Amino acid sequence: MTIAVGDKLPNATFKEKTADGPVEITTDQLFKGKRVVLFAVPGAFTPTCSLNHLPGYLENRDAILARGVDDIAVVAVNDLHVMSAWATASGGMGKIHFLSDWNAAFTKALGLDIDLSAGTLGIRSKRYSMIVDDGVVKTLNVEDAPGQATVSGAAAMLEQLS
């Protein structure tokens, strides 16, 4: 079953690399008592993710935060080191959270996993964005195809936050 608006996020633990080194961050730590924009990508360094989806959120970070958002996070089914390298290469380190859902546990619990084995990627996350308020999904935008970043992009998110 796919998560829906009004549902509470499942408990999960992500890996994230910070200036102090690798840390674990739980859904409670990230979402409890906060309004957070979360978006997911099929894979770090993949074309649509790196050239379209992530840059929009980095470019619009301040505008998103100015609309009552406490934090922004991107999640992918990639390991901690890949997510850290992507954060560094994109200039996003320290600006948004780059969360590693290394074993797809969170993604599967949301019902937003997709098998991209035909493209040699294996089990990954569908591309989506959501506004989460105190752990509860307030909006959910899932792309029809992994190569698109329109309904889940930063421009669409800004409209929803207006």
Rank of each mutant, 00 (worst) to 15 (best):
G56H: 03
S100I: 00
L54W: 01
S84R: 08
S90Q: 12
S100C: 04
N103W: 09
K34S: 02
L58K: 01
L58I: 10
G68I: 06
R35G: 02
F106K: 11
D62L: 11
P47Q: 08
A76T: 10
R61C: 12
F106C: 15
T48H: 05
L38D: 01
H53N: 01
G68R: 07
R61Q: 15
S100Y: 00
G91Y: 08
R35V: 10
V75M: 14
C49R: 00
M93C: 06
L116I: 03
F31V: 07
G94K: 07
G91N: 14
I114D: 03
N60H: 14
N78G: 06
K32S: 13
L51P: 00
F31A: 07
L38M: 15
V75C: 15
M83E: 06
D101S: 05
G111C: 12
I64T: 13
V74K: 01
F31I: 09
N52L: 09
S117M: 10
N60L: 02
G91M: 14
W102R: 12
A118H: 09
L30K: 07
S117W: 08
D62F: 10
S50M: 07
N78Q: 08
H53P: 01
K34E: 08
N60A: 08
L121M: 15
G94L: 11
P47S: 13
S117I: 13
N52M: 09
R67V: 04
A40M: 00
I64M: 11
D70F: 09
D70K: 06
A63K: 13
A44R: 01
F45N: 02
K32Q: 15
G91K: 10
K95P: 10
S117L: 07
L65C: 10
P47W: 04
F45M: 07
T48L: 09
H97K: 11
A44T: 00
L110M: 12
V37Y: 05
N52K: 14
E59K: 15
D71H: 13
T120E: 09
I96S: 03
K34F: 08
F39S: 01
S84V: 07
L30P: 06
L38A: 03
E59H: 13
L121S: 07
L110V: 12
V36Q: 06
L51H: 15
